[in-house]
């Protein structure tokens, strides 16, 4: 049985079927890309997996444990890290303190009412920042960081509790092209080193084809194709979705 098992996930908003009957598997050490055009249901899928939304039906099993119905904070405790499409960090704290908060929470110290938070787990937080290349900015205020740096900080936060699975919603959005590839190379290394399973969404196909082991293609909430990146690239249905299938360009013209 695979590590993450998603079966028949469905969610509709009013009359819009945002996600319909999505099933897939993800193994340890695997880097799986979830791609699709805007509005395909990628972010909804993520919010369903992480407990931010409750699906109408379906099941998500992590190592045999049902995640549906659990709150995000419980899912995190089961070893799932998350980065957000629009970064969610603590603007009024320093960079290293952002990572420290995740470590404090992991150690069950978040309601400890004595001692200084900024002294706890600082070394481990610094080494995590070092891992993502942010060590030199550790004591800067988070609210002055460049967007690409915020994305890297999010990765460090997500890695803090040694997750078994990471959900990364557009981890490279807003970064320069070279930075994007570097960040995903870093992620790929971490996956290889630690055996973490990663599910990520991405719009940049260079990033996907370079690093993903496998890809899922969503369109209008439905799973359109699944397979190795080469298979997906060669898939006619996928090409039609991405390049437009003659609905806007007349076929007889050229």
């Amino acid at each position: 049985m695979s590590f993450l098992q998603v079966r028949n996930l469905a969610k509709s908003f009013g009359g819009v079927q945002a996600v319909a009957d999505v099933s897939f598997d993800l193994g340890k050490g695997e880097l799986l890309a979830l791609i699709g055009p805007n509005g395909a249901g990628k972010s909804t899928c993520f919010n369903l997996l992480y407990g931010n939304l409750r699906p109408d039906s379906g099941s998500v099993k992590l190592d045999g444990l049902e995640l549906i119905g659990l709150k995000p904070r419980r899912i995190w405790r089961h070893g799932v890290g998350r980065t957000f499409q629009i970064t969610a960090t603590y603007g009024s704290m320093s960079v290293v303190e952002n990572v420290q908060m995740a470590l404090i929470s992991d150690a069950g110290q978040s309601i400890r009412a004595y001692g200084r938070a900024s002294n706890l787990h600082r070394d481990k937080a610094l080494s995590l920042l070092d891992l993502v290349g942010m060590a030199d900015q550790a004591d800067r205020a988070t609210n002055v960081l460049a967007y690409g740096d915020l994305k890297r900080l999010e990765l460090a936060i997500a890695l803090a509790h040694d997750p078994k699975l990471m959900l990364m919603d557009e981890p490279t959005a807003g970064m320069a092209p070279r930075e994007r590839l570097a960040l995903m190379a870093l992620t790929a290394n971490i996956v290889a080193d630690r055996g973490v399973a990663v599910l990520f969404t991405e719009h940049d196909m260079d990033v996907v084809f370079e690093h993903a082991h496998r890809a899922l293609v969503l369109n209008r909430g439905k799973l359109l194709a699944e397979g190795s990146v080469d298979e997906v690239r060669a898939n006619a249905a996928v090409q039609e979705v991405y390049l437009g299938g003659g609905t806007t360009f007349g076929e007889g013209g050229a």
């Binding site: 992480y50 709150k71 995000p72 904070r73 419980r74 995190w76 405790r77 998350r82 957000f84 969610a88 960090t89 603590y90 603007g91 009024s92 704290m93 908060m101 995740a102 404090i104 929470s105 992991d106 978040s110 309601i111 936060i157 803090a160 509790h161």
Partner: peptide, 16 residues
């Protein structure tokens, strides 16, 4: 933790 909840409740829930 209280300050974090003010800055980003989403992040706080996402780190347990």
């Amino acid at each position: 933790a209280l300050r974090g909840a003010r800055d980003s409740a989403l992040r706080s829930e996402a780190i347990g």
